[in-house]
Amino acid sequence: MVKNAARLVLAGWVAVALTLAGGSAIAAKPSAPSTASPTSAATKSAAKSCAAEKSRVAHARNAVRKANQQVAKAEKAKKHAHGKKQKKAAAKKLAKAKKKQRAAKAQLTRAQAALKKCRSHHHGGDGGAANPLQPFCDAGLPQPICDAFATLPTPPSGGASPIQPLCDAGLPQPICDAAKNPPGPGGASPIQPLCDAGLPQDICDAASGGSTPPDPLTILQQVCDLGLPLPICDLPLRAPLRHQMIA
């Protein structure tokens, strides 16, 4: 009896000891490492942070492009209109097209401003680099052009710009660098957003590769009229430059 009781007590103590040891082992076992890295998650979030704003800018660009086409079509129709009634209808259609054009450009400006604000809040995530064209806007070039420039993709480092003669004559070099990008949707000029924002359209047409660079004197005078002081804007310097470009 005594031996059996002693055996039972010993067996009980052994069971308790094993239970306590198992619990301690479970408690001491390290938890499995998380597969999601906070750093990588933050990077992905930053990369996608301005995707919606980019999409809105792209849609707004297309709307402006279509509006520009409608205005050009209406202007052509008005020019070829005959008779009082036909001219009145053409003028009305042109006014309507220009109204839509102004609305589309305003929407594009708002979309670009939203993208710029988003990028400023996510430096290094979706492109917080300084705008290389901004100093020229600080000097007098309309700010919407610099805002539009901030939405363009980074141009390739090599290769020649199709409008380099314009920059050799005084046009800001970042514009010529951006012209090295691939064409936009539908074969549009790679810098078309700049012209939608106010840059002379001839510059964007030349950048598309469909025509040779226009006369620097004529085009750069339009840039002078926008408010950016260029060396070519000084009348005494323009005649020698013209001879230089022709030669």
Rank of each mutant, 00 (worst) to 15 (best):
N4C: 13
A5N: 11
L10G: 08
V14L: 13
A15M: 14
V16T: 09
L18P: 02
T19R: 09
G23I: 10
S24V: 07
I26C: 10
S31A: 13
P33A: 13
A36R: 13
P38M: 12
K44D: 14
S45M: 04
A46T: 04
A47H: 08
A51W: 03
N62W: 09
N62S: 15
V64A: 07
R65C: 02
R65K: 07
K66W: 05
K66I: 01
Q70M: 13
A72N: 06
E75Y: 12
G83K: 00
K88H: 14
L94W: 10
A111R: 07
A113Y: 04
K116N: 14
D126P: 04
L133R: 00
L133F: 09
P135L: 14
D138N: 14
P144N: 06
D147T: 13
P153L: 11
S157A: 15
S161C: 04
P162W: 02
P162C: 01
C167W: 07
A169D: 03
P174F: 12
I175E: 04
C176D: 04
D177G: 13
N181P: 04
G187M: 15
P190L: 12
L194P: 01
L199W: 10
Q201G: 12
I203G: 10
C204E: 12
S211P: 09
P213L: 10
P214K: 07
L217C: 11
Q221I: 00
Q221Y: 06
D225R: 10
L226R: 03
D234N: 05
P236S: 11
Q244E: 13
I246T: 06
